[in-house]
Computed example of a mutant assay.
Amino acid sequence: MKRYVHLFLIVLTSSLALLAACKDDKEEEITPNNPNNPQQQQCDTGSVTFSSTVSGIISTNCLACHSAAMAQGGMILDTYARVKTAADNGKLMGVITHAAGFSPMPKGGPKLSDCNIAKIKKWVDDGAPNN
């Protein structure tokens, strides 16, 4: 009988520890593309620039593998000129939207948020200016 009580206490303690570990999780971190999240419904693409928007997205999501030091797949995205080349030839939008015929990026990671994709698309559609 003591054995079962001991086992019950271990299971109960473990369950409470798991619940406590999740109590501070934020909805947007758990489901990054949640259309019901009001914060994600407001994606401002009105003032997208390379320097203030696109370069930050590229830096955060791409440069770990696509810098001059890494250059995976022969793609380097560490300067405006190199990102512009990828934008102009269609590779940038193809890989981040996971379009057919393109290797989905970030490789082995989650797809960029819909908002980040929309921001990059806006910049590309505007001619990929160096702004």
Score class of each variant (00 low, 15 high):
4 Y>A: 11
5 V>Q: 13
6 H>R: 12
9 L>R: 15
10 I>A: 06
11 V>P: 09
14 S>I: 14
18 L>H: 07
18 L>G: 13
18 L>D: 06
19 L>S: 13
20 A>V: 13
21 A>N: 12
22 C>T: 14
23 K>D: 15
23 K>Y: 15
31 T>W: 15
34 N>S: 09
36 N>A: 14
37 N>H: 12
39 Q>P: 00
39 Q>V: 11
39 Q>F: 07
42 Q>E: 14
43 C>D: 06
44 D>L: 04
46 G>C: 10
47 S>Q: 13
49 T>A: 07
50 F>C: 01
51 S>W: 09
53 T>C: 05
53 T>V: 11
56 G>I: 03
56 G>M: 01
56 G>T: 06
56 G>A: 05
57 I>Y: 07
58 I>M: 05
59 S>H: 08
63 L>Q: 02
63 L>C: 02
65 C>M: 05
65 C>V: 08
66 H>S: 09
67 S>G: 09
67 S>T: 11
67 S>V: 04
69 A>S: 12
73 G>K: 08
75 M>F: 06
76 I>D: 07
79 T>S: 13
81 A>Q: 12
82 R>F: 13
83 V>T: 11
84 K>M: 10
84 K>C: 06
84 K>L: 08
87 A>W: 03
88 D>F: 01
89 N>I: 00
89 N>H: 04
91 K>Q: 05
91 K>V: 08
91 K>L: 11
94 G>M: 01
94 G>Q: 01
96 I>D: 01
96 I>F: 06
96 I>G: 02
100 A>W: 02
103 S>C: 05
104 P>T: 02
104 P>A: 12
106 P>F: 00
107 K>C: 01
108 G>R: 11
110 P>F: 10
112 L>G: 00
116 N>S: 07
118 A>N: 11
118 A>D: 14
121 K>M: 02
121 K>R: 10
124 V>E: 01
125 D>Q: 07
125 D>M: 10
126 D>Y: 00
126 D>N: 08
127 G>M: 02
128 A>Q: 04
131 N>P: 02
